[in-house]
């Protein structure tokens, strides 16, 4: 097991006190595996990714839980002990590539810096490795472009550069938070292909945080569905998307326009709870078509099929047939 997250709780300090945004999240990831963390805005999916990287904003804190990366708990590790983890252990790619690139340094300098610091490479060896990685991520003319600055590239090319600077250190795990959301679909398709090809070659595991079920379907082996800071469902990609075992997952999928044109779309009534104000029990219950009395009490995630777990008490009790949700 590469990563084991146990009972993670993260909260933000607000004027009105603490707002819990991640509430008891637990999952594990094997080497080389791709895990999708899907959910809507405010579900806690990005905060979960940031917590694993320990790059939470100052106002946030990990209140409880463990994050075991290669059997070492990094949830409360000191900043100096994280240096060997962030980068060479866990790489990161965000939605906005400019957020991870320094506008004042050439892309070559930035990629080589990591190699020299973490891998102890000489200047020349670092340059060779950087050029090879830029070529591997499909940046046209790496030799001619390595001394250019981030603003000289398009959005898609910048994302390739960010991916190169993460993968050049050969991390065991890559956390990618909405990495293609800001890109056009044809560029998104290129970047998704790139992730797949590089992962296949390097065996890197990945946590893909995304709101887009189609993107998750393209890359993921497993999917976690998050809502109001909790995991509602966790299972193999095909199971989650084709045979969901939670009314929320089913509703989310049904909301995507796909049926006959012009018809009425299925829509979930209401809106997700604001951070810190989720109800007791199942957080989706107030919007759920199947909700009943029992939903006021939160059920633990339990398996409905091998490797496929749901939090929905009604599905677990056999009160909702899974065919109704598919």
């Amino acid at each position: 097991m590469l990563l084991d997250v146990q009972n993670l709780h993260v909260s933000f300090a607000t004027r009105r006190g603490k707002a819990a945004v991640v509430r008891g999240v637990g999952f594990s990831l094997d080497a080389g595996e791709t895990l999708g963390v899907v959910g809507e805005s405010g579900s806690g999916k990005s905060v979960t990714g940031s917590a694993i990287l320990r790059i939470l904003p100052r106002t946030a804190s990990i209140d409880e839980g463990a994050i075991l990366f290669e059997d070492r708990d990094i949830a409360h590790a000191a900043e100096k002990d994280l240096r060997g983890v962030r980068g060479p252990g866990i790489g990161m790619v965000f939605q906005d590539p400019l957020a991870s690139l320094n506008p004042y340094l050439t892309i070559g300098t930035q990629i080589e810096e990591g190699l020299r610091l973490h891998r102890g490479l000489s200047r020349r060896a670092a340059r060779t490795a950087a050029l090879a990685e830029l070529a591997a991520v499909g940046l046209p003319d790496p030799e001619g472009k390595i001394d250019s600055y981030p603003h000289e590239f398009s959005g898609g090319q910048r994302q390739r550069i960010v991916i190169a600077s993460a993968l050049v250190l050969r991390p065991k795990l890559l956390i990618a938070d909405e990495p293609t959301t800001a890109l056009d679909v044809t560029i998104q398709a290129q970047i998704l292909d790139l992730f797949r090809a590089r992962q296949k070659e390097l065996g890197t595991a990945m946590i893909l945080v995304t709101h887009n079920l189609g993107v998750a379907a393209t890359l993921c082996d497993r999917i976690l569905v998050m809502y109001a800071g909790m995991i509602l469902e966790n299972g193999p990609c095909e199971e989650i998307l084709l045979r969901p075992a939670h009314p929320y997952t089913a509703a989310l999928k049904k909301s995507i326009p796909a049926g006959e044109p012009g018809g009425r779309l299925f829509s979930i009534p209401g809106a997700p709870p604001a951070p810190g104000s989720a109800p007791e029990g199942c957080p989706f219950a107030p919007r759920c078509a199947f909700a009943g009395k029992g939903c006021a009490k939160f059920s633990q995630l339990r398996e409905v099929a091998p490797g496929h777990a749901t939090q929905c008490g009604k599905v677990l009790a056999g009160e909702i047939a899974q065919e109704v949700l598919s």
Binding site: A189, D193, L213, G214, V215, A217
Partner: peptide, 23 residues
């Protein structure tokens, strides 16, 4: 069309991928 991902992994694998060159 081929670049727009669908939320169905089986369908998604079957789809013909037509990638454009460059930007």
């Amino acid at each position: 069309l081929s670049a727009s991902p669908v939320a169905d992994p089986v369908e998604q694998k079957k789809r013909l991928r037509l990638l454009l060159r460059g930007e």
